[in-house]
């Protein structure tokens, strides 16, 4: 998918979890990505973060370590 679309989608999810109370927003964001994003989408996101993460919400970049590596 286009990088812009992926960035929009990731940021939308981050925006929701950012507003949630508690201190586990990073975990909940990452869990959402792990539960709903197919491996090649997670791959694209992780690659984008590795390449600097242009356009992504800080929360997305911070949560990178909690996103599971896609299993082939």
């Amino acid at each position: 998918m286009s990088p812009e679309k992926m960035v929009t989608m990731a940021n939308q999810i981050a925006t929701f979890f950012k507003t949630q109370p508690g201190d586990d927003q990073l975990d909940r964001f990452a869990a959402h990505i792990n539960d709903f994003w197919e491996p090649r989408m997670r791959r694209q996101l992780l690659d984008h973060i590795a390449a600097g993460g242009a356009g992504l919400e800080p929360l997305v970049i911070e949560a990178a370590g909690r996103i599971s590596e896609p299993v082939e």
Partner: peptide, 19 residues
């Protein structure tokens, strides 16, 4: 497969990407 699959819009994106 323990990994989630593609949703319809994701299928179409992946199709355009050639995968």
């Amino acid at each position: 497969d323990p990994e989630p699959g593609l949703r319809i819009p994701n299928m179409l994106d992946a199709a355009v990407d050639g995968t």
